[in-house]
Design a protein around this nucleic acid. Structure first.
Lengths: 190, 190
DNA sequence: TAGTATGCGGACCCATGGTCCGTTTGCAAC
DNA sequence: GTTGCAAACGGACCATGGGTCCGCATACTA
């Protein structure tokens, strides 16, 4: 994230190393066993460097998630339909949820780590807010009578770490996205 | 919870004191500032006693929640309709969700504390499992075609600590239960 | 090549969950 | 009462992990 134009060469190198290390530890051990000490060690930098770069544990995981979500964000903001602005809200919402399903399924450990890093006041997390704003706006457009704010949170709850883990652990790789589609369709069509 | 017939008098007294202390701290400070040291201090017992009684932080909050949920559990298992077994699934589910809304609204801090205590593998928590089993069975009965397991988790996600806090912080005391009713109705009738 | 802002790293601090064990105490048998 | 002991107590102690600090190193600039 944030290439920060004026960044010194060693700083940039370390930033990449830290992100890569966190990613690797997340993949190897669960979300729960990634301490910043270990991240620093694996990245080959001091602990202080991690904090200077990312401010906190929360900041680190947010950066990691934001990096992963960049493409999706761009597609939503200015891409072609069905993700982009020109598609009708129903299709756009379904397309967005599909993409998010894939993202979540591919990054289970990251989602879980990010979740617990944001445990108090998860609604404050920028990525979550962006997603929620998007979903809420689409719901409000498609169904002006509903509590779009509430339903937005509910739809995004489909990507809760435990739920994604459960839904993808059954050998049926598409169950998650299928069930979410069904849910969203129901909510939009009723 | 668990009166444990053979329990010594001092043990019983301390158990009650600990639960009361936890409850009080939860109410006074947020869910995040309740350390077991403080609970022990406020209860007027040693830290070891807290752990001997409840095993862990998770165990303590589970006991607290279970205590609060006892009445609801009994009503579901053997009470009169609409909560009890003799009511039709639709009404039964709506009644259950209503009760849970009230419970959640009255115990926001506890819900939040319990949530983070069960952060890894929340589906392992006995109270959550009981609720989910109940909801899932009712959904499956009313709508055999749906992914009842998934929808059960989604419905229960309505009682996420942050969401409850948000929904009740707007001055409109009934928004939570209204929106959940609407959601459940939609899911059951589609 | 020298000067400076930027970055580095790891020792350090502290909060907190969890353990351990010597001491105390409730309870029951006599 | 007295006594014996299982049960419970409590708080010192440990390990972990997030976060801070500051003297030292180094990438850039003129």
């Amino acid at each position: 994230m944030t290439p920060a134009t004026g960044e010194r060469a060693d700083a940039a190198r370390n930033r990449r190393a830290i992100l890569a290390a966190a990613e690797r530890l997340l993949a190897e051990h669960g979300a729960q066993h990634v301490s910043l000490d270990r991240v620093a060690a694996v990245a080959g930098v001091g602990k202080g460097t991690v904090f200077r770069r990312f401010g906190s544990r929360t900041g680190l995981f947010h950066a990691l998630l934001a990096e992963r979500a960049t493409r999706l964000r761009e597609a939503i903001e200015s891409g072609p339909p069905p993700l982009g602005p020109s598609a009708p809200p129903r299709e756009r919402l379904l397309a967005f949820l599909d993409e998010l399903s894939g993202l979540a399924a591919r990054n289970i450990a990251l989602i879980a780590a990010h979740e617990r890093a944001c445990a108090d006041d998860k609604y404050a997390d920028p990525t979550y807010r962006r997603w929620h704003d998007h979903v809420r706006a689409l719901i409000a457009e498609a169904r002006p009578d509903a509590d779009a704010h509430f339903l937005g949170h509910i739809l995004l709850a489909s990507f809760d770490g435990d739920l994604v883990r459960y839904m993808t652990a059954q050998g049926d790789a598409n169950r998650l996205s299928r069930s979410i589609r069904a849910l969203a369709t129901t909510l939009l069509n009723s």
